[in-house]
Design a binder for these strands. Structure first.
Length: 571
RNA sequence: GCGCUCGUAGCUCAGCGGAUAGAGCAACGGACUUCUAAUCCGUCGGUCGCAGGUUCGAAUCCUGCCGGGCGCGCCA
């Protein structure tokens, strides 16, 4: 901060730019005096003013005074000098109008901050974030899109806030299907799976032979046994399948703009040698029950179709291990070896019960000690415009590559430059996935997601490109904000809300809050842009308006980056 | 059958304990000697599935009902 400038009022937690926190801190002592107890000021954004506090409304009855009377008392006592103007309104709200000078000073501070006023967390956690989880020897489909896109947005956001994020790509690289895949690979010769695009055909061919040919079926079963018993030749073939698939997956992630890397692969096969000890430990805790030949845990509170207790099957009746055992082993590894204090699983809503059971069993086994949380982060389905599950006309799941191809083709109508078209097309798909509540199903609609108006990726990218254009013309200037117009004020106030929004995304694991904020910000910018000439403005005002452009651009860029969406300089 | 989840404008969705429920699209009407009008402004449009309950206050919380989706022992 430049010397000589009046000190900006800091809040208790040292966060300079959070107006909500600042107003709360100023209101809290007055509220405590009036109520004779600590009261949450409940400061929120408002349509009737910049912020409002409805804190006295619930107090009125207990204190035997009218809400408006209490609100007047609070307003009279609160030290808001230089911060805001308070006015009692309606049934007893305290409407707060922030001083223009404060908005300007706060935003000028933000302009000098590389993190846009968003501090790193003081309580960093080691977060293991389980997302994407595709299958080896299969192509990515729309079925993997949501986990991958939502998970990556959460990874980026939590990481940026200072948490230690360990990405865990729980790829399906083990199981009985590999018997037929390896046999098919041998039939096809060394070049069986040489190109990523062949993966689906390869898998389907193996599947078809398995279904039709009894000899092949026997060979496949034998091959599974050899794989599980550690036969070197078989393992070698398996590894070649895995390696080829990984190459393909990494290229797909790169195209999607997803941060997953080679180091993040944590396949199911990696837990093979821990499964027996999972069983042993559960047994030692007295949790295991033999049922129909399988080893199960019956966590309390789960009932099946017949009304009886629902088992989590840890070891199957044939002696093999299912996904429950793998999930338990992975969970134990993440807390015990990786030192995770927060476990997140970005997996579709249908698996809710499964994860609830896994967490219950893990807790009973002592693998989720005090201070370690495990959360399923569920999401809804992608539907076609007919309202049913999004599939091809023939009923197959849509390949991600085909989807991206079409997106880029359609986007090239908006942006002739191939690189820009890719950014717009891919961004449109990802943004559409992130813009709504993740728990809800959403309709996959090309026209809507590629529209240049409304809450879409292209609209935000366009807004950003316009800002870049104006800044490019402007030349150098010294950022400093002052408020001279209502549109400036509205934009400035919204820019100061970036921090609470990002915090809320981290707290709720709901990226659509950020998407909605960015859309609102871009809308306010558009209004400002229409009503306030920037480059032609008089000295001083020009610099201030350029500062607003700069800050809006930086906020859009950072926000979109946290969502995993690119911001081309030009459209 | 039990459990979870969702029913908000014609369509797609926000809002999830606070004031007169908000956007976009569609419809209609405006604004281009433009800093990217690929934009912006305005109008029209809703018994927030239904019925009770809790509360000073309910789209939001609770209960029941109706309707859709999903899950419910060896697939992940």
């Amino acid at each position: 901060m430049a010397p000589g400038r009046p000190a900006f009022p800091r809040t208790v937690d040292g966060s300079a730019m959070n107006l909500e926190a600042l107003l709360s801190a100023r209101l809290a002592p007055a509220l405590a005096e009036v109520a004779h107890a600590a009261v949450d000021p409940a400061v929120r954004r408002s349509q009737h003013a910049d912020f409002q506090s409805g804190a006295v409304l619930p107090l009125a009855r207990g204190l035997g005074r009218s809400p408006r009377e209490l609100a007047e008392a609070v307003t009279a006592r609160a030290d808001l000098a230089g911060v805001a103007h308070a006015e009692v309104s309606g049934p007893g709200f305290v409407n707060l109008t922030v001083a223009d000078e404060l908005i300007a000073a706060a935003l000028t501070d933000v302009a000098g901050d590389a993190r846009l006023g968003v501090p790193q967390t003081k309580q960093p956690r080691t977060v293991v974030l389980d997302y994407s989880a595709p299958n080896i020897a299969k192509e990515l489909t729309v079925g993997h899109l949501r986990s991958t896109v939502i998970g990556d947005a959460l990874a980026r956001t939590l990481e940026w806030l200072g948490h230690d994020v360990i990405r865990a790509n729980h790829v399906g690289d083990w199981g009985t299907a590999f018997g037929m895949l390896i046999e098919h690979l041998l039939d096809e010769g060394a070049t069986g799976v040489s190109r990523a695009a062949d993966l689906t055909a390869f898998y389907q061919a193996a599947r078809a032979k398995f279904d039709a040919d009894e000899d092949f079926r026997d060979r496949a079963r034998l091959r599974v046994v050899r794989l599980q018993s550690g036969d070197e030749e078989t393992l070698g073939l398996w590894r070649s399948l895995v390696a080829e698939s990984r190459r393909y997956l990494l290229s797909a992630y790169e195209r999607l703009g997803v941060t997953l890397t080679e180091a993040d692969f944590a396949g199911e096969s990696g837990y093979n040698d821990q499964l027996a000890s999972v069983v042993d430990e559960l047994d030692a805790k007295g949790l295991l029950v033999a049922s129909d030949g399988a080893l199960c845990v019956f966590p309390e509170g789960f009932t099946g179709r017949d009304g009886g207790p629902l088992p989590l099957i840890v070891r199957k009746s044939d002696g093999g291990f299912g996904y429950a055992a793998t999930d338990l082993a992975a969970l134990r590894h993440r807390t015990r070896v990786l030192g995770a204090t927060r476990l997140l699983y970005v997996v579709g809503a249908p698996q809710r019960t499964h994860f609830a059971m896994v967490f219950a069993v893990a807790a009973a086994a002592g693998w989720l000690p005090e201070g370690v949380s495990a959360e399923h982060v569920p999401f809804g389905s992608i539907l076609g415009t007919d309202g049913r599950m999004f599939r091809t006309r023939s009923g197959d799941s849509v390949k991600l590559a085909a989807l991206l191809d079409e997106a880029v083709t359609r986007a090239s109508a908006l942006a002739p430059d191939p690189a820009v078209a890719a950014a717009v097309g891919v961004g449109a798909i990802k943004y559409a996935d992130l813009a709504g509540d993740r728990r809800s199903d959403y309709v996959f609609d090309w026209d809507r997601m590629l529209a240049l108006t409304g809450n879409t990726g292209p609209y935000l990218q366009y807004a950003y490109a316009r800002i870049r254009s104006i800044l490019d013309r402007a030349g150098a200037f010294r950022p400093a904000v002052r408020i001279t117009h209502p549109a400036e004020r509205a934009l400035a106030l919204e820019l100061l809300s970036f921090e609470p929004v990002v915090e809320s995304v981290a707290a709720t694991l709901e990226p659509h809050r950020l998407a909605g904020y960015l859309y609102g910000l871009a809308s306010l910018y558009s209004t400002f842009y229409e009503q306030c000439p920037v480059l032609k403005a008089e000295d001083g005002v020009r610099e201030s308006r350029l500062s607003l452009c700069l800050l809006t651009g930086r906020t859009l860029r950072r926000g979109l980056d946290l969502l995993g969406i690119a911001t081309p300089a030009h459209l």
